[in-house]
Computed example of a mutant assay.
Amino acid sequence: MADFNTHLMGAAAVSGLVATVLVMTGMAPHQAVIGYFVLGVIGGVLPDIDSPTSIPIRITFNVLAVVAGFLLVFTFGARYSLLELIILWLGCYFGIRYGLRKLFIRYTTHRGLIHSVPAGVGFGLATVALAYHGFNAAVAHAWICGIFVTVGFLVHLLLDEFYSVNLYGKKLLKRSFGTAFCLGSFNQPVGTVALYGVIIGLFLLCPSPRPFAALVLDRAHAGNMTQRLWPGETWFPGLLRRVIPTPDKLNDVARASSP
């Protein structure tokens, strides 16, 4: 199984490549692309939140506890006093940070249903719904956010499968092969059915993907990508002009240096 650094770098590499394509085609502004890249990296470490000692689970529940506490405070900010709001925030924080995390660890197993392809799809759909309903993102951009999370998630699973191949031992495949990139678990039929049910529910909460499909299938974006696969007559235009002087500048320098 790949370690945390490998998952982080793998998700960063793939997310960076996809984000670069978005910049080149003009499908999204630079500021949004940075956010997509971060979401892809986050998706790359999400599968390990089912490990009780992993870094992702500590980060996830710490961030979730803080954010949920402030959302609760913002909701009741006009109704209660400052002291009451502080009590609400602390109750929410400790409830999630210790209570919910303890329950989560108790009822999940490492490389269980969370460490599967449908779980990655579910996290992506949850991101789409949150971006659209919670942050009022445009439909196409909300779907891009969810896709980056899912892509990072799938990169994590593929890396785990790759590290399950033993190139130097007598046995080519380790016992862990096939346990990461899976569609469910026969040992957990109820949980698998429930997971697919959650995916259906999340999809119904998401906006229609048609605007995103129209954005991806736009011929103008594909044309921009095709034209920019290879540099034109000049490599690194603009940069070379500053580094390599033009004939006119050389003549000006010669005139200035002549007595």
Rank of each mutant, 00 (worst) to 15 (best):
H141F: 15
N136D: 12
G134A: 02
V165E: 05
F153P: 13
V149R: 00
N166E: 15
V155C: 12
K170W: 08
N136C: 06
H141E: 15
A138W: 00
I144T: 11
A129E: 01
D160M: 07
C145R: 03
A129F: 10
L157C: 07
A131G: 11
A138D: 14
A131Q: 06
V128W: 05
V149K: 01
A137D: 02
L159C: 06
H156K: 04
K170H: 13
E161W: 03
G152M: 10
W143N: 11
V165L: 13
V128E: 14
A131L: 10
A142C: 00
G152L: 08
V128N: 13
V128T: 05
W143G: 12
L130F: 11
D160G: 10
I144V: 12
Y132M: 01
A131K: 05
V149N: 02
V139Y: 04
E161A: 02
T150Y: 07
G152E: 07
H133I: 13
F148T: 08
L158I: 13
Y132Q: 01
T150M: 14
F148Y: 10
A137R: 08
I144L: 13
F148P: 01
L130A: 15
A131N: 10
H133Q: 14
I147S: 13
F162C: 11
L167D: 01
V128P: 12
I147M: 14
V139S: 10
V151A: 08
V165H: 04
L157H: 05
V165P: 05
W143T: 10
F153H: 15
E161T: 02
V155I: 14
E161P: 00
T127M: 14
G134P: 07
G134E: 10
F153W: 15
K170A: 09
L154T: 09
C145I: 01
V165W: 11
Y132T: 01
I144G: 06
F135L: 15
G169N: 06
L130G: 01
I144F: 14
L159N: 02
F148I: 07
A129G: 08
L157M: 09
C145H: 04
Y132K: 03
T127Q: 01
F153K: 09
L130K: 00
K170V: 05
I147E: 07
V151S: 05
A131P: 12
V151P: 03
Y132C: 00
S164H: 10
K170R: 10
V149T: 14
A138L: 09
A131W: 03
C145Q: 05
I144M: 13
G134K: 01
V149Q: 03
G146D: 11
H156V: 06
A142M: 02
V149E: 08
G169P: 01
G134W: 00
K170P: 04
A140E: 15
G146W: 05
V128Y: 09
L159W: 00
G152H: 11
V155G: 04
S164K: 06
G146Y: 05
F135I: 09
T150Q: 12
F148E: 06
L159E: 08
A138G: 14
I144K: 00
F153R: 11
G169K: 04
G152K: 13
V165D: 08
V165T: 03
N166W: 10
V149I: 14
C145S: 12
Y168M: 06
G146L: 09
W143Q: 08
S164C: 12
S164M: 02
V151M: 11
Y132H: 14
T127G: 03
I147F: 14
H133L: 15
D160N: 07
L158S: 07
H133F: 12
D160F: 04
